[in-house]
């Protein structure tokens, strides 16, 4: 058998799951299994207990209020991709989902699982980063909320305790007239991005940028928010020159390199993808369609 031996628990309620994680030593919560199962099969992780969250109905669901989109941690990526609520309230999330893995992995994969796995090249953490998502977590001491800026503790390491679980992800909504864009560069559709960029823009009637958010995925060990790019945008006219100059600031990022992609190439792509995201976000201001494919 591929996975190592473990004991299996399948709590039916969140309460039971929290109790189990509080009691058991070396336990791993199992969400959609699209990252943990490969790690078990390759025996990169050797838990004594697996706590399967798939039977906990209260952890799934999508709801939107005037200013927030709330998504339960165990909501499947494919349900988010096809949610009309999400498409209406937060189209950048729908757009990014079309890049997440493949149809078979989105059918099982969850938003909470992806955020906790925290692969720097994954799409959902980059979106959580650009939108300042709030991550609600439950543990033996009750609930707490972590702003995304404080969520990554390091490379693929969320700042949650082993006995805590993500319950919900809340996305503060931007005004309807905001422009949005998520773009990525990958070798094949469905691969992790080499570099991805997410941008949100609000422009006033005079064509001046009044609000901007830019985040990059894949460039550094954790998703990267770019405040210096945002500062170079706000208060300036939304022109190609403004976008080019702002995106150019990404060249200063100390990108990571690996055997496939040298750091210098990631740095180059960061500039290009940031500019493309900004141009597309601007072109969509006023509610043009999100779907690119």
């Amino acid at each position: 058998m591929k996975p190592p031996p473990f004991s299996y628990h399948d709590p039916a309620t969140l309460q039971q799951a929290v109790e189990l994680l509080g009691q058991l030593d070396n336990a791993k919560p199992l969400a959609g299994g699209q990252s943990l199962m490969p790690m078990l099969n390759m025996r990169f992780v050797l838990p004594d207990h697996v706590v399967d969250l798939n039977g906990i109905a209260e952890l799934s669901g999508i709801s939107a209020s005037a200013d927030t989109l709330d998504i339960g941690a165990m909501t499947r990526q494919r349900d988010i991709e096809f949610s009309e609520t999400v498409a209406w309230a937060c189209p950048i999330l729908s757009e990014a989902l079309t890049y997440v893995g493949h149809r078979q992995t989105r059918n099982r994969g969850t938003i909470g699982g992806s955020l906790c796995h925290l692969d720097p090249a994954a799409e959902l953490p980059t979106i959580a980063c650009v939108l300042d998502a709030r991550i609600e977590v439950i543990g033996p001491n009750g609930l707490r909320t972590i702003p995304f800026a404080e969520f990554p503790a390091g490379y693929m390491m969320p700042s949650i305790e082993p006995d805590e679980l993500v319950t919900r992800v809340s996305f503060p909504l931007w005004p309807r007239e905001a422009g949005h864009s998520f773009v990525e560069f990958a070798r094949r559709h469905g691969d992790f991005a080499i570099v991805s960029a997410a941008a949100m823009l609000v422009v006033d009637a005079m064509g001046v940028i009044t609000r901007a958010a830019v985040a990059l995925g894949g460039v550094t060990a954790v998703p990267l928010r770019m405040p210096e790019v945002e500062q170079a945008l706000v208060g300036h006219k939304a022109t190609d020159e403004t976008f080019r100059a702002a995106a150019e600031l990404c060249r200063a990022i100390e990108a990571v390199g690996d055997v496939y992609v040298p750091a210098a190439y990631r740095q180059h792509l960061a500039v290009v993808m940031a500019r493309r995201a900004l141009e597309q976000a601007f072109a969509r201001i006023g509610g043009a369609s999100a779907k690119t494919h």
Partner: peptide, 9 residues
């Protein structure tokens, strides 16, 4: 729904 059977128990 399509799913990878190697990634499920």
């Amino acid at each position: 729904q399509s799913a990878r059977a190697c990634l499920m128990l």
